[in-house]
Write a protein that binds this DNA or RNA. Structure first.
Lengths: 166, 166
DNA sequence: GTAGGTCAGTTGACCGTTCAACTGACGGCG
DNA sequence: CGCCGTCAGTTGAACGGTCAACTGACCTAC
């Protein structure tokens, strides 16, 4: 293991400002969504993906992939959304292992009701605060990070000690 | 309520890229920290704040404020950290209501062990992916967002329907 | 001094996420 | 055909976080 490349004072400040801003931003948007639509952001994203899919239907695993979340999370979330009547499960006709999640009309209505406020929040707390050049800078920065991070699949797991084990 | 200012195609793409990148970035860093140090990012941040405080000691509420998290979260977290032997609680001498959290030597050692890997992760997944101008752009963008968001305290609560109530 | 409001912190129930273990269907190979 | 590894998805326990209710100490005003 090589010597640690510590952050200098400037980088340190940048990192903390960035961390703080992202924490507040996503915290605020989450809170607004929870307050106004009664759902966490993860559920909103599932509804969005489904609403854009052909026949408002998706395989569980593509739903997981496109929301970059685990199969388990999708499974639990869809279970809750099904109870709420926003999503319906169907068995896949071509692969009996597979399951399809279908957005119901109620689910679409719930999404339609939630979207305006949420979008307004995104605009207010993000786009309105930045100059047009900053928006494109943010876009480029995000794309760079996304390119790097999305190529990090199935990294070696290693040992994972838990806090409780100490 | 005015008409919704929807996102245009460019903004939509920017927002999704940004959302995806941030999700992957913080997800990756969280996972690394959990794997290598056995603690979630929130706990790490508490240890950092304490390590920088005079006498490695802080009031619970300033700890909460400086990590922009709720008193409740700090209370739960410090309870866990105390069980792990990384933090010790003391009653405040000047205000008997108050509690002081003190970083123990074990806690400092745990932080010292966790820091290099975590910093390396921040560098690898963030700074290394950006050009120097992009780093200052990100800094400015974060500062702008932080300025806006940190002035949003105690916003009116409003109605908060739960998913289960439907 | 004592009553009432505020403040610091804790507690417990609930929720969403994660991890690991499991079920059951697919698919290639003998 | 029948086995075996893989794949899709589910399940349940554990964990971190949130919210609301609570405890107890401070503090001002009467």
């Amino acid at each position: 293991m090589a010597e640690t490349r510590w952050l200098d004072a400037d980088e340190q400040r940048t990192w903390r400002t960035f961390l703080g801003a992202m924490g507040l931003l996503f915290g605020q948007l989450d809170r607004e969504l929870q307050r106004d639509a009664g759902m966490p952001h993860g559920y909103y994203e599932i509804l969005v993906r489904l609403s854009e899919a052909p026949h408002r239907t998706m395989r569980m695993s593509s739903l997981a992939e496109s929301s970059q979340s685990s199969r388990s999370r999708i499974s639990h979330a869809v279970a809750k959304l099904e109870i709420a009547g926003w999503v319906r499960r169907e068995t896949c006709p071509t692969d009996r292992r597979g399951a399809l999640a279908v957005l119901t009309d109620d689910g679409f209505a719930a999404l339609a009701a939630a979207a305006p406020t949420h979008v307004e929040g995104v605009r207010t707390h993000l786009f309105d605060q930045l100059t047009p050049p900053q928006v494109s800078q943010l876009s480029a920065i995000s794309a760079a990070l996304l390119g790097h991070l999305s190529s990090l699949e199935g990294a070696p797991a290693g040992h994972r000690p838990d806090l409780a084990e100490r």
